[in-house]
């Protein structure tokens, strides 16, 4: 991030490399219950990101010493496939993926009614099959859908989006190039009904005004992404209803 570059990230009309204006999202598509074995699953395509999420549980927590007598614990595992990035990534967890797993687990734990399942664990497996910037937020957004599809009781869905700074301008939903050559990156996830922030990270350089501009862009965008989440969940049940009707 922030490596000095003469790469142009806006055209003469102020549009971004992929033709979006600063406040535009990339196309997002979510599908639920795409896996058989898992208790719930979701697949998300967000720009060039392709991420598969599976939920197992609530089930008895193992190892036993991890059991909490008051509530379930949520364990998200964010993993990048070796072929998901330009240069082959060495398989297995690294420091980046462990940190992302931790903040995603904590964000989901805020939304799940963990107090209903003492001594249990809820596993959320996030496999990034193709990465194109914003994977943690896309993975988290899909995780919330997979949890809902698994029937896990939740206070609300969790929906996220990133904003950042490119060529001194605040933009929504950074692309790969913008992420690589941009000056700041701000991923945020909220519970949309209440606007409570459950995940926030930031790196780069932002003035306080730029931060406020970025958060208002993100909050606006989460309304649209949340609708996509809801539609994905509803669509599945609409299909089920049709199957039964025929």
């Amino acid at each position: 991030m922030g490596t000095a570059s003469d790469k142009k990230l806006f055209d003469e009309n102020g549009l971004r490399l992929d033709g979006r204006s600063p406040g535009d999202l990339r196309p997002i598509r979510i599908e639920t219950d795409v896996l058989n074995r898992a208790d719930g699953s979701a697949f998300i395509e967000w720009g060039g990101n392709k991420i598969q999420v599976a939920v197992y549980g609530p089930r008895e927590a193992y190892p036993r010493h991890m059991q909490d007598i008051n509530q379930a614990f949520v364990r998200a595992r964010y993993n990048m496939a070796a072929f998901s990035v330009d240069e082959r990534k060495r398989p297995g967890p690294d420091r980046r993926s462990m940190e992302i797993s931790k903040v995603i687990s904590e964000a989901l734990q805020a939304a799940i009614m963990v107090e209903l399942f003492p001594r249990a664990q809820i596993d959320v497996f996030i496999e990034v099959l193709q990465a194109d910037a914003g994977t943690r937020i896309a993975g988290l957004t899909a995780s919330a859908v997979a949890l809902a599809a698994a029937g896990v009781p939740m206070r609300d869905l969790v929906v996220g989006c990133t904003a950042g700074k490119v060529d001194g301008k605040v933009v929504l939903d950074l692309s790969k190039e913008e992420d690589n050559f941009g000056q700041a990156d701000l991923p945020i996830a909220i519970m949309p009904k209440s606007g409570k922030v459950v995940l926030m990270q930031m790196d780069g350089d932002l003035s306080v005004d730029e931060f406020n501009e970025a958060t208002s862009m993100i909050f606006k965008a989460t309304e649209r992404i949340n609708q996509i989440q809801r539609d994905a969940l509803k669509k599945n049940y609409a299909n089920t209803a049709q199957d039964w009707g025929e």
């Binding site: 949520v74 931790k102 903040v103 687990s105 904590e106 964000a107 734990q109 805020a110 700041a184 701000l186 922030v197 459950v198 995940l199 926030m200 990270q201 930031m202 790196d203 780069g204 350089d205 932002l206 003035s207 306080v208 931060f211």
Partner: peptide, 9 residues
């Protein structure tokens, strides 16, 4: 702002 991190559930 140079870095931020929200943590805990």
């Amino acid at each position: 702002l140079k870095a931020m991190q929200k943590g805990e559930p």
